[in-house]
Design a protein around this nucleic acid. Structure first.
Lengths: 198, 198
DNA sequence: CGGTGCACAGAACGATTGTTCGGTAAGCTA
DNA sequence: TAGCTTACCGAACAATCGTTCTGTGCACCG
C-alpha cells in the first residue's frame, strides 16, 4: 500500500473535511472520515480529530457530537484574483462566513424577509425593492429600525418616542412622521438588508 | 405528562431543528432530536424524519447519515400586504420561500464578497461596512457599479467614460472622480449588497 | 549502535445508534 | 356502536459508533 508523508499532517485533511461539509452540510462519522482521509484505523482518526479540536477547527455539541469549530469556516471574503498577486485585500477581521444566510440570520424560526416599498428610508441606505431581514419580536428600542404593521401593510421606519407615545420616523425629509393612533404593532426589528442589482 | 396536539405536526418541529442547526451546524441524533422535540419514542422521531425527508427538508449522505435537504435553508419572504391572522405566520400563505444565497448568487464560482470601505458610494445606498456581492469579470458597461483594483485595493464605483478613457465615479460629491493612468483593472461587477445591522 | 519518538494499523469492547414491531388512547366517520 | 386512522409510547435488537490499548515500522539523534 502506498504510504504518504504529511509533514504538518493538518492542511490536506482539513480541506477534505471542509469540502465534504460544503457538499453535505454535516460532519461525517469516524469511519467515513477514515476513508475520506485515506486512513485505515479509526484510532488514528480519533487522534487527528483531537488535534483539530485543539486548534479550534472542530468542536462538540453538548451531546458530544462532533461539529464544526469556531475556525472551521475561516475564509477570505474576497479571494485573490485570477492572476496578479495582489496582497490580502482589506478584510479587517478574520471573518467566518459560510453562507450569506448564515451571516445575516441568527434565529431562523424568528427571521423573515420583507420587501421594501418606496423611498421613505433612503437616507438610511434602504432603497425601494430591497429585502429587509427581520427578527420578529413584539417590541423594540428607540432608534432601531423596525418593521411595523400600519393599515395592514408592512412599513420600515425608525422607532422614536414623542410625548410619551411611539412614532415611526422615515429617513427622508419628504415623508411625514407616522403617529399611530392606538397601539403601534411592531412586527420585528431590522437585522440586515439584502439588495439585488443584477 | 402533558400531551400536545400539533395539527399539521410539521412546522414547530422543523423550526426547532433549524434553530438547533443554526447553533451547532450539525443534525443531531434521533435521541437528541427526541428531547429537542419533546418526544419520548425514537420510533416516532424516525417517522417524523421520514416525513421531513419526503418533503425535501432532510436528506441522507451516501453513507446514510442524516443531513439538511434542499429546502432546509429556505427562508420566509413576507409579502407587503399583511393578511389578518398574522400572529402565527402560517407557512405557504403569504410567504414565498427563498434562500438569500440563491437570491443573490447566480454563479458561485465567479462570485465573491468585498467589504466596502468609506462613504464614497453613499448616494447609491452603499454604506461603510456593507458587503458587495461581486460577479468577477474583466470588463463592464458604462453605468454599472464595478469593483476595481486601484493601488492594490478594492474600490467600488460607478464605471463611466470620459474622453475615450474609463473613469470611476463615486456616488458622493465630496469624493473625486478617479481617472486611472494606464489600464483600469476591473475585478467584477456588483450583483448585490448585504448589510448586517444587528 | 541502541533508543526514543512519531505516524499509523488492528483488534476488542461497551455505548449508542436507528429500525422494527406491537401496543394504546383519542378522534373522526358511518 | 364499531371500525379506521392518527399520534404517540416502549421494548428489543443488530449494526455502528467512538474509545482504548497494544503493536509495528520508519526517522531522527546521539
Amino acid at each position: 500500500m502506498a504510504l504518504k508523508n504529511h509533514q504538518p499532517l493538518d492542511p490536506a485533511y482539513l480541506e477534505k473535511l471542509q469540502d465534504y461539509y460544503a457538499e453535505h452540510k454535516v460532519i461525517p462519522s469516524y469511519s467515513v472520515l477514515a476513508t475520506l482521509w485515506g486512513i485505515s484505523a479509526k484510532s488514528w482518526v480519533s487522534e487527528c480529530v483531537r488535534r483539530f479540536e485543539e486548534a479550534g477547527y472542530l468542536d462538540w455539541t453538548p451531546d458530544r457530537q462532533l461539529k464544526p469549530g469556531a475556525r472551521f469556516f475561516e475564509r477570505r471574503l474576497a479571494h485573490d484574483t485570477v492572476q496578479a498577486g495582489l496582497p490580502n485585500p482589506a478584510l479587517s477581521d478574520g471573518y467566518d462566513l459560510v453562507t450569506i444566510d448564515d451571516y445575516l440570520v441568527r434565529v431562523p424560526s424568528k427571521t423573515s424577509l420583507v420587501r421594501v416599498k418606496g423611498e421613505s428610508m433612503i437616507d438610511a441606505g434602504i432603497h425601494d425593492g430591497d429585502l429587509i431581514v427581520v427578527e420578529q419580536q413584539p417590541n423594540a428600542n428607540v432608534g432601531e429600525i423596525v418593521v411595523a404593521i400600519v393599515d395592514n401593510e408592512f412599513t420600515v421606519k425608525y422607532l422614536d418616542r414623542e410625548k410619551g407615545g411611539f412614532v415611526l420616523k422615515p429617513a427622508n425629509k419628504a415623508f411625514p412622521v407616522i403617529r399611530p393612533q392606538g397601539r403601534l404593532e411592531i412586527f420585528g426589528v431590522m437585522a440586515g438588508l439584502v439588495r439585488k442589482t443584477r
